[in-house]
Amino acid sequence: MDITRTLPEECIAKIISGTSPRDACRLSLVSRAFEAAATSNFVWERFLPPDYQEIISSSSSSSASLNMLTKKNLYFHLCDNSILIGNSNNTSFQIDKLSGKKCLMLAARELSIIWGAGDTPYYWNWISSTQSPVLPKSRFSEVAHLRSVCWLEIKGRIETKILSPKTKYGAYFIYSMENGCYGFQTPVKVSIRLENEVEGGDAINAYLNPRIWSGTHDQQQSNEELLQINQQDGRLPIRREDMWMEIEIGEFFNGSQVDNHGAVEMCLKEVQVLNGKSGLVVHGIELRPKEES
Rank of each mutant, 00 (worst) to 15 (best):
4 T>F: 02
8 P>T: 03
8 P>F: 11
8 P>L: 01
16 I>F: 00
23 D>A: 14
23 D>F: 01
24 A>Q: 00
25 C>R: 13
26 R>G: 11
26 R>A: 08
26 R>S: 13
30 V>S: 01
31 S>T: 08
32 R>G: 13
34 F>Y: 09
36 A>L: 09
37 A>W: 01
38 A>V: 02
41 N>W: 00
45 E>G: 02
46 R>T: 11
52 Y>Q: 02
54 E>H: 10
55 I>P: 11
57 S>E: 15
60 S>L: 11
68 M>L: 15
70 T>G: 15
72 K>F: 09
75 Y>C: 01
75 Y>P: 11
76 F>R: 00
76 F>S: 02
76 F>W: 14
79 C>N: 02
84 L>N: 10
86 G>A: 10
86 G>C: 11
87 N>D: 12
88 S>Q: 15
89 N>A: 14
96 D>A: 05
97 K>D: 09
98 L>H: 08
98 L>C: 03
99 S>V: 01
107 A>D: 09
107 A>Q: 09
108 A>N: 02
114 I>W: 08
115 W>H: 01
116 G>R: 07
117 A>Y: 05
120 T>E: 15
122 Y>G: 13
125 N>D: 15
128 S>D: 09
131 Q>N: 12
131 Q>C: 06
133 P>H: 04
134 V>G: 02
137 K>I: 12
144 A>H: 06
144 A>W: 07
151 W>Q: 12
151 W>D: 14
151 W>K: 10
158 I>W: 06
159 E>S: 14
159 E>Y: 10
160 T>P: 07
160 T>F: 06
164 S>F: 00
164 S>V: 00
172 Y>W: 15
173 F>T: 05
174 I>G: 11
176 S>W: 06
178 E>I: 00
179 N>G: 07
181 C>G: 05
181 C>T: 03
184 F>C: 04
185 Q>W: 03
188 V>F: 00
190 V>E: 05
191 S>W: 11
196 N>L: 04
196 N>G: 02
199 E>I: 11
205 N>T: 04
205 N>A: 14
209 N>H: 06
212 I>T: 08
213 W>V: 06
217 H>F: 06
219 Q>D: 08
224 E>D: 06
226 L>G: 13
230 N>H: 11
230 N>E: 14
231 Q>W: 13
236 L>N: 03
239 R>L: 05
245 M>L: 15
246 E>N: 00
247 I>H: 01
248 E>L: 03
252 F>Q: 01
254 N>H: 07
257 Q>Y: 13
257 Q>L: 14
258 V>N: 15
258 V>Y: 12
259 D>N: 07
264 V>K: 04
270 E>K: 02
271 V>D: 05
272 Q>S: 12
272 Q>F: 06
272 Q>Y: 02
275 N>R: 09
280 L>Y: 00
281 V>P: 05
285 I>Y: 05
288 R>L: 13
291 E>P: 01
